[in-house]
Structures are given as structure tokens and as C-alpha cells.
Design a binder for these strands. Structure first.
Lengths: 186, 186
DNA sequence: TTGCCTTGAGAACGACCGTTCTCTATCATA
DNA sequence: TATGATAGAGAACGGTCGTTCTCAAGGCAA
């Protein structure tokens, strides 16, 4: 038998791929079973319900996002550089094959009506990102509104890249962020 | 019997309210029937399938959006004023009770995997908005990238207002747009 | 009034999905 | 080897949903 931790990871990663590509409600538990190679009985031993699996998938996405941001901004040594590096990270992500928009925004649009837990998780993720940007802006000496504006640019770039299919949105948003930073710090 | 046009409007408007508040997949055709006061048989005589009803609802939303933008920007007499008026329009919309984000973004997140028609409709709507902004930016004498940046701000304000529940996103995006306009036209 | 067409209300149907259950095979232990 | 617990495969169950069908009621022409 496969170790419980390994099986759990297989299920979460398979569900993540399927949910992200097709949407949560369009993917049945049997499809998750087939993709993960873990029996339904085992899946329900690891996750009490599909909702719990969705929560685990979002948690997995959050960890991936945090790791990606951390890695992307590690090379920058100033707060301003870190802020701009966020958009470089987005640029690379938008160009990955299979990019399909922000999984949190997608999940919110799909499930906000039926699952308060999902809505709350999405809100927490976006809040955490806003706080991250706010810390950097404060460190750079910028005003409070600038943090909100940078975050809005990042959100807008994600939906624009997803729907219009234009990865350039990251570079455009980055250029806008530069203008805002210059204007605020002048 | 109710006139066909009237019945059609009742169905579309009821479906719009339900779909927007709860999501498309969470609302059954029977709930649409109850809310519209039109029998299922009649609904299926007017729309061959639920997909067709979804398409009609999105078309209805597009008309509403265009009318709202037109009314919101009618008072401005310069291209720059019209661009900023778009954010004022968003501000008013975000503060309406029941505001739940952009219906097109929500529908895309929910249905992009299963309904190419919906994905295409959403893309067309966003393209049309981008062209509208691009025309205004060109009229104001701004560079091409500015149009994309303004559109990104508008998209980001919508998702931020929806998820974080902060209608202030409109004013913050508007202020950012002002900075970008000033920098580009200086 | 009589017969016909249409309509509305809702039952019915077939498909699908989340979840649970059954049954068989496997493996560890004595 | 015998035994008992466990896991996997997939059938089964209950519910929901999109769609269609039935049937009774009502309006309209002759």
C-alpha cells in the first residue's frame, strides 16, 4: 500500500490539475480517482467530502503561489525591485502552457454561491497578497493607496491574461506599476 | 397568454438575477421557472437549452454594461474625462446591493472548461471594452500601452471589489489611471 | 354547444454525481 | 498453512438536473 502522505499528495495534485483545467463542478470524483490512481475508498478516507478536497487543493495552490512569489522576488534587493519582480513572476506564469487564470478567482466565480468556505479561503488568499504588497510599499516609503493600486494591477493582469489570452498583460501592468512608484516616490 | 417578447424578457431577467447571485450551475431550470413565472414548456420553446439561456443572459448583461458605460461617460466632454468616468461608473456599480463581481469573469471561471460558446462570448465582451478604451486613449493622444493599462486597472478593480468586498477599489483604480494619464500626456 | 388547438402544471425519464457498500484478493502474523 | 484484517475495484444508492411527455383546462372558430 502507498504511504498515506504520498497518496494524499497524488490526490491533491491530480485534483488540482483537473479542477484548474476544467472547473470544480465539471470534474467528478471518479475522474480524480482515475487521474490520481487512488481508489475512491482511499480518497474518502483521506478527505471526508469533495468540499474538503477542494479546500486542500486551494491550500496547495496557496503554498505554490507563496513559493513562487518568494522565489521570484528573492533576487531583488530593494522593496521597489521586489514589487516589480512580482510582475515578472506573473509574466513567467502567464506564459506557462495550460495557464488558465487565477485558480482562486476561478473558484470564487464558480462556488461563491454554494460554498462559504471556498469564498472565505479565496478572500484570505487575496488579503494575504494585499498585506504582502502593503509591507513592501511601506518599506519603499510609498503611501497606503499605492499598495492597493499595485494589487489591483496584479489582479487585473491575471484576469486579462486569462480571458484575452495576452501574457503581455504582466509587462503592461509592470510598466504601470513603475509609473505609479515613480510618481509616488518622487 | 403573455406576449412572447414579454415572456422572454421575464425569463432572461429572472435567470440573470439567479445566475449572477448563485452561479449558473447552482441554479436549476425549475428555479428559473419559479422566479420568472413562465412554465418550463414555454421556456424551452423560447430557448432550446440551458446553454442558449446562458448565452441570452450574457447578451443581456452586455447590453446593460454598454448602456451603463454610455450613460456614465455621457457627462464628460473630453476623452480623458470619459476614461475617468468609467471608474466613476464602476464605483457606483460596486456600491449597489447585490454586487457580485463581473458576471463575465464569473461565467468564464465557471464554464470555460465546458462551454466554448461562453468562453468566446466573454472574450468578445472584454475585447469590446478594450477597444472602447483604446479609442478614448487614442483620442486623448496617449500611447497604445496606456489603453491596456487602463483596462487592466478596470478589470482588477472589479475582481478586487468582488472578492475583498472593497468598493474603494474603483476610486483607487481611478487615481492610478489619473497618474498614468498625466505621465503619458505630459 | 362542439370540437380542436394550445397552454400550464407538474410528473416522468435518463443521465450524472457524490457517497457508501459489497465482494474478492492480498498480506501479515501465528 | 490458516486466519483475520485491509485495500482495491466497481456496483449500488439516493439525489439532482436538464429535458420531454402527459393530461387536464381553457379559449376560439363554426
Amino acid at each position: 500500500m502507498i504511504d498515506a502522505t504520498v497518496a494524499r499528495n497524488q490526490v491533491v495534485e491530480a485534483a488540482d490539475r483537473l479542477f484548474y483545467a476544467q472547473g470544480v463542478q465539471a470534474v467528478g470524483m471518479d475522474a480524480v480517482r482515475a487521474a490520481a490512481g487512488v481508489s475512491l475508498k482511499r480518497i474518502y478516507a483521506l478527505f471526508p467530502s469533495k468540499d474538503a478536497l477542494v479546500a486542500a487543493v486551494l491550500e496547495h495552490r496557496r503554498a505554490q503561489w507563496n513559493a513562487g512569489i518568494a522565489a521570484g522576488t528573492a533576487g531583488a534587493d530593494t522593496a521597489r525591485g521586489k514589487i516589480l519582480a512580482v510582475f515578472d513572476f506573473l509574466d513567467g506564469w502567464f506564459r506557462e502552457p495550460g495557464f488558465n487564470g487565477c485558480a482562486f478567482i476561478n473558484a470564487y466565480g464558480e462556488l461563491h454561491g454554494g460554498s462559504p468556505a471556498v469564498a472565505r479561503t479565496v478572500r484570505e488568499q487575496k488579503d494575504a497578497f494585499q498585506r504582502y504588497i502593503a509591507d513592501l510599499v511601506r518599506e519603499a516609503g510609498g503611501p497606503e493607496i499605492l499598495a492597493a493600486q499595485i494589487a489591483i494591477l496584479a489582479e487585473g493582469a491575471q484576469t486579462t491574461a486569462a480571458i484575452a489570452g495576452t501574457p503581455d498583460a504582466a509587462a503592461q501592468a509592470r510598466a504601470a506599476a513603475e509609473v505609479l512608484l515613480d510618481a509616488a516616490l518622487a
